[in-house]
Structure formats: structure tokens, C-alpha cells
Write a protein that binds this DNA or RNA. Sequence first.
DNA 1: TCCATGTAGTCAGGTTGGTTGACTATATGG
DNA 2: CCATATAGTCAACCAACCTGACTACATGGA
Lengths: 146, 146
Amino acid sequence: MDQDWTTAVATLRVAGQLVQGIQRGMRARGFADLRPAHGFAFVRLSHGPATTVQLAEHLGVTKQAASEMVRHLTEGGYLRRRPDPSDRRQVLLELTAAGRTATDAAAAAAAETVAAWRTKLPADQLDQLSAALHALAEPGPLRPVW
Amino acid sequence: MDQDWTTAVATLRVAGQLVQGIQRGMRARGFADLRPAHGFAFVRLSHGPATTVQLAEHLGVTKQAASEMVRHLTEGGYLRRRPDPSDRRQVLLELTAAGRTATDAAAAAAAETVAAWRTKLPADQLDQLSAALHALAEPGPLRPVW
DNA sequence: TCCATGTAGTCAGGTTGGTTGACTATATGG
DNA sequence: CCATATAGTCAACCAACCTGACTACATGGA
């Protein structure tokens, strides 16, 4: 149980390092205006268009908060708002080319950070780590850690 | 590299589950007024008293932000402010009995969440996971993930 | 000894990212 | 055709941070 506590601490440390690594990679790629929470929106939208309410549900925030994020990302050129003619209440959100570029950059930055782990851990142990994490990870929307 | 991206996602998922598990455990133990960031302050203070500035450095925030957190935790009865007679500029912060109880509760909640991983992963694989995470975790102050 | 410089902490004010609540416009099922 | 539900916006508020200015105290050197 004391052992479990140190495992928890190590998990938080590694996750923190990963988030910082992604941030750094994004900055290096010229996306300093994007924060971690934006990445989770991109992940959702890269699977297909969504409304603001759907995005809010995915992120676990109110529709008003999601609306503000959408405004920001639209102004930044990452998102396009396309009114749905078949339901004129809703506006479909989709990634622009810049949005897809940013999404790819985030994935690359994350992969780069994980790849750096290979210098600290033999390949087979990293594979085991990955397998164990996949076994523990529950399905559901990917959200900011807190 | 695409493999690394899925490892990154799994890491974020597991870390998120851990944070949520700790939060849930803290709520169940009657500490609904404590947020994750407070835990990191407790960890620092459980190693010995610190000034507000030292706490701010540990948490990676300004002294004003740390000061506000200290005010909140002091009002909640978790911290005691003890003016240092040998340097009358500074006030030493230390955990009260309630603060130590809360710290223990957080550690127990974290351990409980990790212990639940045993139902999903054989003991030897959990040990390997823990060892790999410890190998990757860099030293330094433990801070909120972002 | 005194003073220049540095440090701990507070006060004031602003920004950001979230909240709740109220509202409009549009859709839909009985 | 109307009651009810849904998408989105507006307004007000709040919590957690920030910068900048300030006071009180400490300290090392002329």
C-alpha cells in the first residue's frame, strides 16, 4: 500500500512530464497559442464534425465554456463553423487545414516525448509499460487530467 | 511512432483515472474542500515547515497565488502560520493535525486507486509497470500535471 | 553605524477559463 | 398546432491565477 502510493506518485510525475513534453513540442512547432485542453477538442473533431454541445459533453464542460473555446479556435483559424441546413439550430464544427496540421503536430509531439523514453528504458520494458497502460486505460472521452 | 502516440493517450487516460480516483476517495473521506493542487502543498509541508515563497517555488506559481492558497488552507484548519522569531519577515507554515490527517487520506486514496489496478493486471505486471514508471519519473518537485 | 540592496509578505487590479441562469430560435411528436 | 425539448448566445459571477507596487525586515559592506 505504501508501495502503491509511490506508484501513484510516479504515475503523476510521468504524466506531468508527458504533458510538458507535448507543450514544449507544440511551442517548437509554432503552436504556442494552443493549450492542452484544445488538443482534446481536436481529437474529438478529427473523428468528424460535432456541434458545440457535443464538444462540451466530450470535454466535460458546460456548453458556454465550450462555446468560448470554439470562438477562440475559430478566430485562430483552426475551426470552421458550418451551419447545418437540415437543422438550423445547430452549427457543425470541423477542423480547417490548419486544425488538422495542429492535430498532427500534437500527435507528433506526444510521440516524440514517448520516443525519448526509449533512452531510459529498454525496448521490451517500454512495450510492457505500454501494454500495461492500455490494459488499465478505460474507454470513454479523452479529457484533461483535471 | 503511431505506437508511441497510443502509449501517450493511454498514459493520459490512466493518469486522469488516478486523479479522479484520488478525488473520489478524498470526497468519500470527507475532504470535499480539497483540490488536487492542495495535495501537492501538503506533500511539501509534510517534509517540514516552509515559507509561502518556498511553497510557491515548489508549486511553480507566484507567491501571491501561493499566499491565497495558504489563506484558504489556514481558514480550513489544515495549516498553521508560525511567525519565525529569528527572521521576522517570514512566517513558517506547518500542517495541523487536520492537515496531517488530510495528507494521510490523500495517500490512502491514491493507494486505494492503484490497488484497484490489481484487478485488471496480474501482480507481476503491476510491479513491472511501477518499476518502469519509477525509471521514467524525473526528480524534482511534484506538481499539478498542468 | 548607516545605508544600499535584497527578501518575505501583502494589497490592488486585471485576465482567463470556468460556472449558473435566462433567453431566442428552431425542431419535433402527440 | 401546440407543448416540450434542444442549440446556441448573452449576462453576471467566481476562482485561480497573473503583474506591479508597496511595507517591513535583514544583511553585508563603506
